[in-house]
Simulated assay, not measured.
Amino acid sequence: MTGQTQPALWRVPPETRTALESPELLVDLAAAIESADAAAAGESRWSRAVAAAGRVRDVLRARMVPEAAPRSCQSPALLRVAEERLRQIERKRYDAVHDDQRTSGQLWQMACWWADPESTWLDWPYVDGYPEHGDRVADLVRAAALLTAEADRMLRLRAQGLA
């Protein structure tokens, strides 16, 4: 792969994976490729490939349904909370397995600590060290992300009939 870039990896929800595996999609994509190939007859292989890729993109785009995800113009704070939660999961490895081990209220207690600018190291729910308050918005974003983790934990328990 000299001189080529690595392909981008996309996060996709389970329903997207299911949709990509549908036989109907394969038929639609095959028809789009065949149509593009016929329309570009006599062109170079590269031109035909680009035309086919464009048709495939159009088929996929036509099947997309916009999600109700936050946009920075709608709620910059909500977008920051989502980014912080992803940071916690991906960089700090605070995933569902980690969070499910916090059964004594540690997640919401930490959220309360971050949300209260008057809290001190005496209020921190862990024995091992404690963080420092910083930028007020950043502290509130951390608090909201921790509450999100706690809500996710509770939803997992509820789905198992344990809450």
Rank of each mutant, 00 (worst) to 15 (best):
M1N: 10
M1H: 09
T2N: 10
T2S: 11
T2L: 11
G3W: 04
Q4Y: 13
T5A: 07
T5N: 05
Q6T: 11
P7Q: 03
L9G: 03
R11I: 14
P14K: 08
R17F: 12
T18D: 15
L20Q: 05
L20G: 02
L20W: 09
E21C: 08
E21Q: 15
S22I: 02
E24F: 06
L26T: 13
V27K: 05
D28T: 15
A31K: 08
A31H: 05
D37E: 12
D37R: 05
A38N: 09
A40M: 12
A40Y: 06
R45H: 14
R45A: 15
R45Y: 15
S47K: 11
R48F: 05
R48G: 05
R48P: 03
A49R: 05
A49D: 13
A51H: 04
A52N: 04
A52H: 06
G54P: 01
R55L: 06
R55N: 09
R55V: 01
R57S: 12
D58G: 10
V59H: 09
A62Q: 15
R63C: 07
M64I: 10
P66V: 09
A68H: 14
A68F: 08
C73N: 12
C73D: 09
C73Y: 12
P76N: 11
L78M: 10
L78T: 07
R80P: 00
R80T: 08
A82Q: 15
E83L: 15
E84H: 12
E84R: 14
E84W: 04
R85L: 13
R87A: 14
E90D: 09
E90W: 12
R91K: 11
R93V: 03
Y94D: 06
Y94F: 09
D95F: 13
A96T: 00
D99F: 02
D100A: 02
R102V: 00
T103L: 08
G105V: 12
Q106V: 04
L107I: 03
Q109L: 15
M110K: 06
A111V: 01
C112R: 14
C112I: 01
W113T: 06
A115F: 02
D116S: 08
W121V: 10
W121C: 14
D123S: 13
D123M: 07
Y126M: 11
Y130K: 03
P131M: 08
D135K: 00
R136A: 14
V137D: 02
V137N: 01
L140Y: 05
V141F: 04
R142E: 09
A143R: 00
L146P: 00
E150I: 01
A151Y: 15
D152T: 01
R153Q: 05
R153A: 02
M154G: 04
A159Y: 00
